[in-house]
Amino acid sequence: MYENKYLTIYHDLAGKIRQGYWKPYDKLPSENELVKRYRTSRETIRKALNLLSEHGYIQKMKGKGSLVLDVGKYDFPVSGLVSFKELAQNMKQPVKTIVNELEVIKPDPDLKRYLHATSKDEIWKVIRSREIEGERIILDKDFFYKKYVPTLTREICEDSIYEYLEKQLKLKISFAKKEMTVEKVNDEDRKYLDLNGYDHIVVVKNFVYLDDATLFQYTESRHRLDKFRFVDFARRK
């Protein structure tokens, strides 16, 4: 019962934050107020607050209470080269990868331009939806030269392609060039994403290179407008 009590309080407070009962940067009621509201002990309230902090709902300020964080958007690093699996581990939210398409294709004119490919090249095409908290809000379209990635399976694509490339194939992924645009949604977005009425989408294009400066991957990552905050860190020299 004791453990269930703090979990019940955690879920109640988390639900209120998600529903907007408290806005981002509002202060939660004090521990004393929460003790009275839930008719429980201070220790139980502290356990619930610690869980809220661990899951990114609040920032605990020493001597100043708890500040509600903006949980409506997920931070997406602009400058890093990070796999979705690595991002998902930091999100602390229920996530799922859905493999919509997996096949080897011949490059169309756009892929020839993006990958500097020829008509003779074979390219892996992988289209995956990323589901977060029950909504499909990212569409990842990955294209790899088959000569560098001889084999791909649905199981690998559901887990982490980068983990497979680096640990199994021993490829050394070094850097990427990125482009970011806002575009109108297309039929593919409508098919594979829960757009929630939005008619534009944020598109991040990645041109990914191995450590010998070989371009081996082109990625188009399409994000629902309302769900992401694109972040970077800058220092003035």
Score class of each variant (00 low, 15 high):
Lys178Ser: 10
Lys227Met: 06
Tyr114Lys: 11
Arg224Phe: 02
Arg154His: 10
Val35Gly: 00
Thr97Glu: 11
Val204Ala: 08
Arg37Cys: 04
Leu165Glu: 00
Pro109Asp: 10
Ala176Ser: 12
Tyr21Val: 14
Ala176Val: 08
Leu152Asp: 02
Lys141Ser: 13
Lys141His: 13
Ala14Cys: 07
Pro77Ala: 06
Leu13Gln: 10
Lys73Ala: 07
Lys96Cys: 07
Tyr148Trp: 14
Val104Pro: 08
Tyr74Ser: 02
Ile161Val: 07
Arg37Lys: 15
Ser119Met: 09
Phe84Cys: 07
Glu31Gly: 01
Leu169Cys: 00
Leu81His: 13
Gly72Leu: 09
Phe207Pro: 00
Ala14Thr: 02
Gln217Val: 03
Leu139Cys: 05
Glu103Pro: 01
His55Ala: 03
Tyr198Asn: 12
Ile137Asp: 03
Gln19Val: 04
Val208Phe: 02
His116Gln: 04
Met61Cys: 05
Tyr218Ala: 10
Phe84Asn: 10
Arg190Ala: 15
Thr118Ile: 05
Glu54Leu: 08
Ile138Cys: 04
Ser83Phe: 06
Ile105Leu: 14
Lys47Gln: 05
Asn90Arg: 12
Glu33Ser: 06
Arg136Glu: 03
Gly15His: 14
Val95His: 06
Lys16Gln: 14
Phe175Val: 03
Arg224Ser: 04
Val185Ile: 15
Gln93Asn: 07
Lys64Thr: 05
Ile127Asp: 00
Ile156Val: 11
Val78Tyr: 14
Gln93Tyr: 12
Asn206Ser: 04
Arg154Val: 10
His55Lys: 13
Lys106Tyr: 15
Ala176Gly: 07
Lys23Val: 11
Asp187Gly: 12
Lys85Cys: 05
Tyr21Asp: 08
Asp12Cys: 12
Leu28Glu: 01
His11Arg: 15
Leu7Val: 09
Glu179His: 11
Lys177Cys: 05
Leu152Met: 13
Gly134Met: 15
Phe143Asp: 02
Pro77Lys: 11
Thr214Gly: 02
Ile161Gln: 00
Glu31Met: 04
Ile105Met: 10
Tyr218Arg: 11
Asp226Met: 06
Asn100Phe: 12
Tyr148Ser: 08
Asp140Phe: 09
Val203Pro: 02
Leu49Thr: 00
Val68Lys: 06
His200Ala: 02
Ala14Glu: 04
Glu133Gly: 11
Gln93Lys: 15
Gly63Trp: 01
Lys85Glu: 09
Thr219Trp: 03
Lys36Gly: 04
Val231Asn: 09
Glu135Pro: 03
Gln217Thr: 06
Thr153Pro: 07
Thr214Tyr: 12
Lys112Tyr: 13
Lys184Ile: 07
Leu34Met: 15
Ile127Leu: 08
Val204Pro: 03
Gln168Tyr: 05
Arg222Cys: 05
Tyr218Glu: 04
Val68Tyr: 03
Lys178Met: 12
Arg235Asn: 10
Asn196Ile: 13
Lys141Leu: 13
Asp121Gly: 04
Asp142Thr: 08
Leu81Asp: 10
Arg229Val: 04
